[in-house]
């Protein structure tokens, strides 16, 4: 046994934040968020099957401020998980592991997720007449 207390393996709070770890953590977080958000899809489909009254409630929630924020979060989670998931599938083939490439594709996933989210919500707001 060593006489001196040796440093233990450094944990997350020791590291400088970098895209390699951020892209990985976000992938999980977005995945969990999407799983939680699947409740919304269940509500949408069951209300559509139930009738106009139930569907109006879901529409009311989707159009409210809280609903829009939740849906915005859902959109970003889907966009990010989709793009970073494609990155994972690329890496499954053994490509994209050079540090430079890995960092670049990480930024593509992060920035691209915001671009996709903006595009989707531009479509939503245009359809709603800029409301």
């Amino acid at each position: 046994m060593p006489q001196v207390a040796r440093p233990r393996s450094p944990h997350l709070d020791i590291y400088r934040w970098q895209i390699q770890m951020v892209s990985s953590i976000l992938h999980r977080a977005a995945g969990v968020a999407l799983a939680a958000g699947s409740v919304l899809l269940v509500c949408l489909l069951t209300s559509l099957a139930s009738g106009p009254a139930a569907y109006a409630k879901v529409q009311g929630f989707a159009g409210s401020i809280v609903g829009m924020i939740v849906l915005l979060g859902f959109t970003w989670s889907l966009a990010y998980h989709l793009l970073n998931g494609l990155r994972h599938l690329l890496e499954d083939t053994g490509r994209g592991f050079a540090i430079k490439t890995f960092v670049m594709t990480g930024w593509v996933a992060v920035i691209g997720s915001f671009v996709l989210t903006a595009l989707v919500w531009a479509c939503v707001l245009l359809q709603r007449g800029g409301a």
């Binding site: 009738g51 106009p52 569907y55 998931g85 494609l86 599938l89 989707v120 939503v124 709603r128």
Partner: peptide, 24 residues
Amino acid sequence: TAIALVPLSLWLVWLLLSLVHLDY
């Protein structure tokens, strides 16, 4: 399932966007 969800989620987004201006 991930590969299946790539085209399916793009379709889902398109469908949900179509629902915005539709009534029940």
